[in-house]
């Protein structure tokens, strides 16, 4: 019986993926675009060369970090929409520490280390704000997080055009880039940093063990699955929710720190690159299972990078990848919903 449903599950998921592909194809046909060529270009654009692969991995890093954090809040039954703002605050805190020490005598390695740490703390504080609003203010975390996202964006713009503006005049291209010694060391000829990659992989592994193997992780799940029963079993519920927010903020903040130290080397207006929302999609798609997060996040990163080719080669808009990413989540959730309904009937 159990085996049976597991296979049935896999088949159903596969059907969902096929449906998403089919619908995306239909949309392309409707727009007079050649679907097969588009898919070929996405694949070529993401895995066609070592350079492309390194770009995919570079995009994988913040996405995986964000997803890792979100797995914690989702397990606790929290919709941490504010993750986007938590990435931004991570980036801001990182930039702040880098600016603070860039002219000092401290060794660049230490400055980078401190700045990443600051990014994690920044993200965690921003997440705790959403948590505190929920716990003490009765503000649903979805609304609180959404509001804080707007505040975070406004804060970035103010910094870029205000106190941190480039010499002369502020610009949408962001703050003055940091000197190369304040970048996370990269592999020669590629943009990829082993350090960042290592951090991302270590994070998802840590979250996996946290949720699967620790008492704390089990308590988080208990709070997420049945708040009232968890309370009666003696688990301090709001404290665990706050902890989940805090931890998620650390990972989101780390993602922001990577965007500054490993990707853009400065603060730009859209520093989060939408990885927060994309991370929410990935977390939902993997049904909050840490073990699937890495491959699915890689797939989404590949779609992101691969679609960059589309406007150049086929004069198509690169937002096609977003269509496919969204479709996938919708279909996977939909077939799951239908399956649940069907199960309940029988």
């Amino acid at each position: 019986m159990l085996k049976n449903t597991r296979w049935a599950n896999l088949l159903i998921q596969l059907a969902a993926v096929l449906m998403a592909l089919l619908l995306t194809t239909l949309i392309m046909l409707a727009a007079d675009a050649p679907p097969l060529e588009a898919y070929a270009n996405i694949i070529k654009g993401s895995f066609g060369s070592l350079d492309r692969i390194s770009k995919v991995l570079l995009s994988w890093i913040p996405l995986l970090l964000t997803t890792a954090g979100l797995l914690i809040t989702f397990s606790t039954g929290l919709w941490n929409i504010g993750v986007e703002g938590q990435i931004v605050l991570g980036a801001i805190a990182t930039t702040w520490v880098l600016r603070l020490f860039q002219d000092s005598a401290i060794a660049p390695g230490w400055i980078i280390f401190l700045s990443i740490l600051a990014g994690m703390i920044g993200g965690a504080i921003w997440a705790s704000l959403a948590g505190a609003l929920k716990t003490f203010g009765g503000v649903n975390e979805i609304f609180g997080g959404l509001g804080l996202n707007f505040v975070a964006t406004a804060l970035t713009l103010w910094l870029i055009f205000g106190p941190w503006k480039r010499p002369g005049v502020g610009s949408m291209s962001g703050t003055q880039p940091f000197p190369e010694e304040l970048w996370l060391p990269q592999i020669p000829d590629y943009d990829l940093s082993y350090w960042a990659l290592g951090l991302a992989i270590a994070s998802i592994v840590a979250v996996y063990f946290l949720l699967q193997g620790t008492y704390f992780g089990l308590r988080l799940k208990a709070v997420g699955k049945n708040f009232r029963a968890a309370h009666l079993l003696g688990i301090p519920t709001w404290q665990h929710m706050m902890a989940a927010f805090f931890l998620c903020g650390i990972f989101a903040g780390a993602a922001g720190a990577m965007q500054v130290t490993a990707v853009y080397h400065r603060l730009i207006p859209s520093i989060s690159s939408g990885y927060g929302y994309l991370g929410l999609l990935v977390a939902m798609l993997v049904n909050y299972q840490a073990i699937w997060a890495a491959p699915v996040a890689l797939f989404y990163a590949a779609l992101n990078i691969g679609s960059i080719q589309l406007p150049i080669v086929l004069k198509m808009d690169s937002s096609l990848s977003g269509v496919l990413q969204g479709m996938l989540v919708l279909f996977v959730l939909m077939v799951e919903g239908i399956r649940q309904r069907y199960l309940r009937r029988t």
Binding site: Y215, L218, A222, K225, N226, R228, A229, A230, L233, G234
Partner: peptide, 20 residues
Amino acid sequence: LEEGLIPGLSLTEHFILAEK
């Protein structure tokens, strides 16, 4: 099932949670 137990968790997980 609404207040006493946590649907989705196993018996073992419940005993783990109940221990301090």
